[in-house]
Amino acid sequence: MHHIHLFTLRHFSVAAALVAVVLWSSAPLLAEHALDLAPLPLAALTLLAGALATLPLTRREPTGHLSLGWRAAIWIGLPLLTTGAVSSYFIGMRLAPASDAALITYTWPVLFILLSQWLTFGKVRFASVLGAMIAFAGAAVLMVPEAASGQSGSLAGYGFAALAAVCWALYSWLCQATPVALSPLMPRILLTSSVITAAAALPFAQGSFTLPDHDTLLAGLAIGLGPFGIAMVAWDKALRFGKASVIGSLAYGVPVLAAAFLVLAGMSVLDWRLPIAGALVVGGCLQASRR
């Protein structure tokens, strides 16, 4: 019975991770429909929608028995990392081509693997370092031509996408390491992130605020309900019940799916560099997760 239970949990974790992967892949396409809203207000809106989407999961999960460090990590660290990840992601997609920014952001699984190995074993395996080098070479395929042509806007976008990758890697490691389940706490974490993001957007508002149009509002809500609502909970469940190496490897398909969605929708041009960079990123992440 114990083996059957483990088998069921592993399949559940894979299914939950696949739900998160498909929803995350839709984020760049939905963001292209919300271009009338600045990145920070868009991030605040999506995080608020994510908090509302996860509200049914709320239940009292005592955290008072945790050390002060863990409580700070849950109630300060996770909201700040979520704010950094989502805001940087949207800014990166505005300053650089959306498919390129999504690809660079999703180098985060290899960063997650390197971080997990370092903090768990005190060292990083050579296979993981080699995988990271291959994945980052994929990102360089996109970034180097932009640097050579002096397009500072795209370079800044790539920088924000890389920052989003770092935030997601740290967020995933904290999700896996916390001694309590995060799903019941997710509405409050996302709501806190939304408030932080809205506060960060105020200095740029310059005293004016206009409501987004109908299509922009729907796109922002859809991003919050799916990629940053249901997907966040599904990913937490996947990390909680599955193996980090297996679950992390499923996320490698996100940039490929995201780029495919954009190209099929006619919102991105299939540049020759994109499939090469995608193959290098996915291949590098698979190499990094090899046993």
Rank of each mutant, 00 (worst) to 15 (best):
A127E: 10
S128F: 01
S128L: 03
V129E: 04
G131Q: 06
A132H: 00
A132S: 11
M133G: 14
M133T: 10
I134N: 13
I134T: 11
A135M: 02
A137K: 00
L142R: 12
L142K: 08
M143V: 08
V144A: 13
P145K: 11
A148H: 05
S149K: 03
S149W: 01
G150I: 01
Q151P: 00
S152H: 04
G153V: 00
G153W: 02
L155R: 07
A156T: 03
G157L: 05
Y158M: 05
F160Q: 12
F160S: 08
F160L: 10
A161R: 09
A162D: 07
L163A: 15
L163D: 12
A164S: 15
A165I: 01
A165S: 14
V166Q: 06
A169R: 01
A169H: 06
L170G: 12
L170V: 09
L170I: 05
Y171D: 15
Y171Q: 14
S172G: 03
W173R: 14
L174W: 13
C175H: 07
A177P: 01
A177R: 12
T178I: 03
T178M: 14
V180E: 11
A181G: 13
A181E: 05
L182N: 09
S183E: 15
M186L: 15
M186W: 04
P187Q: 07
P187K: 09
I189A: 13
L191A: 15
T192A: 15
S193G: 15
S193H: 04
S193L: 03
S193T: 00
S194E: 06
V195R: 02
I196W: 12
I196V: 14
I196G: 08
I196T: 10
I196S: 11
A198P: 01
A199C: 14
A200T: 03
A200R: 03
A200L: 14
L202W: 09
L202N: 03
P203V: 02
P203N: 01
P203M: 06
F204H: 13
A205Y: 08
A205D: 04
Q206T: 09
G207F: 05
S208Y: 09
F209A: 14
F209H: 08
T210N: 13
L211F: 15
P212A: 04
P212G: 13
H214T: 11
T216S: 15
L217H: 06
A219R: 03
G220M: 02
